[in-house]
């Protein structure tokens, strides 16, 4: 009975931003060209959000 909205509402503002960022990165298929690039991008975004 859970909806996408319920899940997003439960998250901290930083986590909400990071979910959107990771989803966008996955859709760009970055990992096909460079497997570590996507992980590095997630690490960079995380450091930005949780200083």
């Amino acid at each position: 009975t859970e909806s996408l909205k319920d899940i997003m509402d439960d998250l901290s503002p930083e986590a909400r931003k990071l979910v959107a960022k990771v989803w966008q990165l996955e859709r760009e298929h970055l990992h096909v060209k460079n497997p570590t690039l996507l992980t590095d991008e997630i690490v960079r975004a995380t450091k930005e959000l949780a200083k």
Binding site: I7, D10, E14, A15, L18, V19, V22, T46, A50
Partner: peptide
């Protein structure tokens, strides 16, 4: 903790 929160949301 932030990455883990996002992981469980996914």
């Amino acid at each position: 903790a932030l990455v883990d929160e996002v992981l469980s949301a996914f």
